[in-house]
Amino acid sequence: MRNMLRSMMAGAAVLLLLGSAQAADGVDAIKQRGTLNVGVKADYKPFGYRDPTGNVVGIEPDLAADIAKRLGVKLELVPVGASNRIEFLQQGKVDLLIATMSDRPERRRVVQVIEPLYYSDYVNILLNKKAGIKDWADLKGKPVCATSGAWYNKDVAKSYGPEIVAFDGSEKPLFAMKQGNCIGYVYDQTFLQGKLLEDEWKTDYDLPLKGVLPSPWMIAVALENASLQKLLEDTTKDWMKTGFIVAAEKKWGITPTEYSLSMHEQYKDK
């Protein structure tokens, strides 16, 4: 009985050791396994969403596919959400995250960020084409819909002086704008660009202004995974050099952001 207990405990210890060893090793483990597991969004058009056959497609799956190609392994996309993505990375269930994740100091403490940052979101305003707004300053005193609780509402109000009308979520402000309660909707530029892919919105609305208040996104790997980190840093620089991200934006139908254009410009000749 005692022997059995002891061997069971030893077994458990070995299991734990093996488990932790697996999480730490990098590129070699991926090559050995033959698949690269990447956490992506499946509900954020056009960055990661389902097509009718069930595959996850979009800009970020394209980036993931490019990494897998460089490694010479198969790609496995794991749909993640904001609530579970960091856990999946820490558990080792995914090797890296390309999942519309904003760069925040508290995230940098728990995961390894890949620099340079691959993408950046902005704050922008979806406007009716008839509104005739040419500049952010033109918004002064005009009613503008927004999502309550968004961190930038106050900044926008202070800098440009529109009258913010806040609603819950993203559907209600869009509806209110359609009803004519406000002239535009201030929100994440990436989301608004996704809206403009729909016939419903692209006929009457557009994003005529330049995005403000950039909020960069990060690709993340587990802490102390130096080999994968190095590979991804080189890959990101190469994307910027070749304009791969700008091309992906165009492929998926959105106007290239100022961030990707300027990074391409900066790395082009290196």
Partner: peptide
């Protein structure tokens, strides 16, 4: 986060522009 019907329904809703 299991990709069962309800998860897929939400994702389909997003893919159709929400």
């Amino acid at each position: 986060g299991v990709s069962e019907m309800l998860t897929l329904t939400a994702q389909v809703h997003a893919a159709e522009g929400g």
